[in-house]
């Protein structure tokens, strides 16, 4: 208390609030530092869900990572379809696969790249939310929309819209680049057949589910690395790894993993595909839908309770 220092500090000369007000000089480099004059807000502002959706849309489109992920998803789908089409000659010549190939579905061949596409689009689903947690942006987001759940809904809608777009682009590109090769074997998917559109829609559905799965998991885990690891493991690695374990309950479990479950309603372009007895198409669709919905619901419950 009595520790004393001579009054040399200039700060102590302007201690009274009044002195501060009059002494504060006009800022020189910021001539526009002038706020509106009224104490009551004059600015028209009202938080709406439509506004929250617009905000999320701008967020997604204003990041380079979004465009990279979308581009690579469409690119990978196209390249894989091209690869499968290029293998047709060898597959047709090989007596072991020739029979299976004669029954191959052109639409399935065209969309055969979706399995890897599911992983890249899962990265988008993760980044949409984990990118906010890792950068601290989430605090700005939740300050603007403190009820939080609308943010998740708006993000989910934006992710679904972008994924649908990229699925359509990927399938269209795959269709175009494989058309030449497929026509030699009469496998160009007929656009007037319902079956073709059912497969294309199923492909888009799987991509959307993968993106939402990863988004839900990302909201729960809040870490990009952890979320991408989980998505990669569940979507791509587990069926292959567990496929070697010939135990009944493991094989049953494997059938309910996303990739094998998708085979229940998407005839595979790959003739060697298929683990155990497949699920029925309806169950397959429901299982895939559950992968999208269950983490999302858990995320919506948790996001309100946890500190941002």
């Amino acid at each position: 208390m009595t520790a004393a220092v001579a009054i040399t500090d200039t700060a102590t000369t302007a201690l009274t609030p009044d002195a501060v007000t009059t002494a504060a000089p006009e800022p020189t480099a910021s001539p526009a530092a002038r706020a509106p004059r009224t104490p009551q807000p004059t600015l028209k502002a009202r938080r709406t869900f439509l506004g929250t959706m617009r905000g999320e849309w701008i967020k997604l489109l204003s990041l380079r990572s979004t465009w990279w992920v979308l581009g690579s998803t469409a690119g990978i789908m196209t390249l894989l379809a091209l690869g499968v089409a290029s293998s047709l000659k060898a597959l047709m010549a090989d007596p072991l696969t020739a029979h299976a190939m004669s029954n191959a579905n052109g639409a399935a061949l065209v969309s055969s790249g979706f399995q890897l596409g599911m992983v890249t689009i899962a990265v988008l689903g993760a980044l949409v939310i984990t990118g906010e947690y890792s950068t601290g942006m989430i605090r700005s987001t939740f300050a603007a929309v403190p009820t939080r759940v609308p943010v998740l809904a708006a993000k989910a809608i934006a992710v679904v819209a972008l994924t649908t777009g990229v699925a359509a682009a990927g399938i269209a590109l795959s269709y175009l680049v494989t058309m030449g090769t497929l026509s030699k074997y009469g496998l160009v998917p007929a656009l007037d057949r319902a079956e073709t559109w059912r497969i294309f829609a199923g492909t888009a559905f799987c991509l959307i589910a993968a993106a939402l799965f990863s988004f839900g998991v990302g909201t729960l885990l809040r870490s990009t690395a952890a979320t991408v690891t989980v998505a990669l493991t569940v979507l791509l690695l587990l069926p292959g790894i567990l496929g070697f374990i010939n135990v009944h309950w493991v094989q049953t479990f494997v059938r309910y993993l996303p990739m094998p479950a998708s085979q229940a309603f998407l005839p595979s372009g790959d003739p060697n595909q298929g683990v155990g007895t497949p699920l029925s198409a309806t169950v397959g669709v429901l299982v895939i839908a559950a992968y999208a919905i269950v983490p999302l619901v858990a995320a919506a419950v948790m996001v309100r309770r946890r500190d941002a």
Binding site: K44, A45, R47, T135
Partner: peptide, 30 residues
């Protein structure tokens, strides 16, 4: 309430204007 909670509460990959536009959009601010 307008809050400056943490200067890092902003995504570094977005431009300053885009950041403000995402915030503004939620409230229909011009």
């Amino acid at each position: 309430v307008g809050a400056l909670l943490d200067a890092k509460a902003i995504h570094p990959g977005r431009s300053a204007r885009s950041h403000l536009r995402t915030m503004a959009a939620t409230h229909g601010i011009s």
